[in-house]
């Protein structure tokens, strides 16, 4: 962002005349840009257009054009087919996972940064190795464990392993952020005899707020879209979350594509709204510190 704002006079002078002249390569770039626009966005547009068609319109109409008689009946069908229930399940799982991941990581990150303890260092290194472990590699024992705990087919059964696998990256990002807080600030507050909890509340949390928001968004998107945990750890209607709901709509309405497309659009509703109202925060959150 900063580089956009900071513009020296020289650059303005140099760029102004250049921009007015139409360069052949800029025309080519824009043309390629339009091609990519079609590839990247048209499938999404297709989702939207199809979701607004009637079943008959889908079978008879021209598939690549919007319907002349758009209808919301598919959305109504989806909402009546238990969608709200599945949506709320996803909200519960995602919000609980994010709260636990970010809360646990923040406390842990603070201690990792503030203490010079050997054991803590080793623990942090183990978390870093955890970054490398794919969920798929642990899913079989997780299934056995969750079943033995009596949590199979429950929302809690999905939340617990999601937290464990969300921790490493969140912790790493927060450690790096907390580490950037100048030591003098801790010292000046520490001299007043502030406890760890006061330091956290009045110094670390306010300063780390941008990072906390970013990782929360990242973890939310991960939890919202997670497919493997619900696939393996749940089976019934009552614990069905969004991605599983799409799969079951697809199975249930095999020939009724518009209904499934409406479910697909609705399943992304929180992210679509976030994109419309806070695009910059959402995109920054999705990068989760991989940027630069």
């Amino acid at each position: 962002m900063a580089s956009q704002v900071v513009k020296t006079d020289a650059s303005v002078n140099l760029r102004a005349p250049r921009r007015r002249r139409l360069r052949w390569y800029n025309v080519v770039f824009t043309a390629l840009g339009v091609v990519w626009l079609i590839i990247a966005f048209y499938p999404v547009l297709y989702m939207l257009m199809t979701s607004l068609r009637s079943q008959q319109g889908y079978l008879l109409g021209i598939p690549w054009l919007p319907s002349l008689h758009p209808t919301f009946e598919n959305y109504a069908t989806v909402l009546q087919a238990g969608f709200v229930h599945y949506f709320l399940n996803s909200v519960i799982v995602s919000v609980c996972s994010v709260a636990l991941i970010v809360g646990c990581s923040l406390l842990c990150a603070y201690v990792v940064v503030r203490s010079r303890n050997r054991a803590v260092r080793v623990i942090f290194d183990v978390f870093l190795v955890g970054l490398a472990l794919p969920i798929q590699a642990a899913i079989i024992p997780i299934y056995v464990l969750i079943t033995k705990m009596g949590l199979y087919d429950t929302l809690l059964g999905m939340i617990l392993p999601s937290v464990a696998f969300g921790l490493p990256l969140t912790l790493l990002i927060l450690v790096n952020f907390v580490r950037d807080i100048p030591n003098e600030l801790y010292e000046s507050m520490g001299l007043e005899g502030a406890s760890d909890f006061r330091l956290l509340r009045h110094l670390v949390i306010p300063l780390a707020m941008p990072a906390l928001i970013s990782v929360s968004i990242y973890d939310f998107v991960q939890a919202w879209n997670n497919f493997l945990f619900p696939l393996v750890l749940t089976q019934s209607d009552s614990s069905r979350v969004m991605p599983m709901a799409i799969v079951s709509f697809q199975g249930q309405y095999t020939m009724n594509v518009p209904v499934t497309m409406a479910a697909v659009i609705l399943s992304a509703l929180p992210l679509i709204l976030a994109y419309i109202f806070g695009r910059r925060y959402l995109l920054r959150g999705m990068l989760a510190g991989f940027g630069k």
Binding site: S105, C108, L145, A164, D196
Partner: peptide
Amino acid sequence: QRWLMIAPAVVFFAVFALFPMLMA
């Protein structure tokens, strides 16, 4: 107190990520 602060993260990670990995 500090051990208590890192405990939740460590327990979650140990029980639901590390232990399953070893069990695999």
